Amino acid sequence: MRPNLSGVSRVMGRIEEIERKIRPQKDEDVLDKKKDRFVDVLETAEEKERKLPEKEKKTRHPVVPGIVSPVRTMSGGWEDHIAPLAAKYGVEEALVRAVIRMESGGQTMAVSPKGAMGLMQLMPETAGMLGVDDPFDPVQNLEGGIKYLSQLSDKYQGDLVKALAAYNAGPGRVDSYGGVPPFAETQRYVKNVLSMYRKNSGSDD
Score class of each variant (00 low, 15 high):
85 L>G: 00
146 I>G: 03
99 V>F: 02
60 R>Y: 09
139 V>D: 04
54 E>S: 11
180 V>Y: 10
142 L>G: 12
16 E>R: 14
137 D>R: 06
132 V>S: 03
49 E>N: 02
55 K>C: 05
90 G>W: 00
138 P>V: 09
195 S>F: 13
137 D>Q: 14
176 S>C: 04
123 M>V: 13
161 V>D: 03
140 Q>L: 02
34 K>M: 03
201 S>C: 01
121 Q>S: 07
191 K>T: 12
91 V>P: 12
164 L>I: 08
89 Y>W: 09
124 P>F: 08
34 K>Q: 12
124 P>M: 06
51 K>D: 14
99 V>Y: 04
180 V>R: 02
86 A>L: 02
137 D>G: 10
42 L>E: 07
76 G>A: 12
1 M>I: 08
103 E>R: 03
97 R>A: 07
117 M>E: 11
147 K>A: 01
36 D>L: 07
178 G>H: 01
154 D>G: 10
178 G>R: 08
152 L>H: 03
136 F>P: 04
8 V>G: 04
108 T>F: 08
78 W>F: 08
41 V>S: 11
89 Y>K: 10
2 R>Q: 06
7 G>N: 15
200 N>I: 09
148 Y>M: 08
96 V>I: 15
54 E>H: 04
145 G>Q: 01
97 R>F: 06
116 A>N: 03
71 V>F: 09
194 L>W: 00
61 H>I: 00
37 R>G: 10
153 S>L: 15
59 T>F: 15
154 D>I: 11
48 K>T: 14
32 D>P: 04
19 E>S: 14
125 E>M: 04
95 L>T: 03
189 Y>K: 04
199 K>Q: 14
168 N>P: 06
144 G>R: 11
16 E>A: 14
131 G>F: 09
3 P>Y: 11
199 K>N: 01
203 S>L: 13
52 L>T: 03
104 S>P: 06
13 G>I: 13
26 K>L: 13
1 M>G: 12
44 T>S: 10
73 T>A: 14
195 S>I: 04
127 A>S: 09
184 A>K: 10
5 L>F: 15
90 G>L: 12
46 E>K: 05
17 E>A: 14
55 K>P: 01
66 G>D: 02
23 R>T: 15
129 M>G: 05
84 P>L: 07
170 G>M: 13
14 R>Y: 11
120 M>A: 05
52 L>S: 07
8 V>W: 15
161 V>Q: 06
36 D>K: 15
82 I>M: 12
21 K>Q: 12
74 M>P: 08
198 R>I: 00
12 M>S: 07
51 K>P: 05
9 S>M: 15
55 K>H: 13
122 L>G: 09
76 G>I: 11
171 P>D: 06
61 H>D: 13
24 P>R: 09
192 N>T: 05
53 P>Y: 04
197 Y>H: 12
124 P>I: 05
89 Y>A: 03
58 K>W: 02
28 E>G: 00
25 Q>K: 12
52 L>N: 12
122 L>C: 07
179 G>D: 13
3 P>D: 06
125 E>D: 10
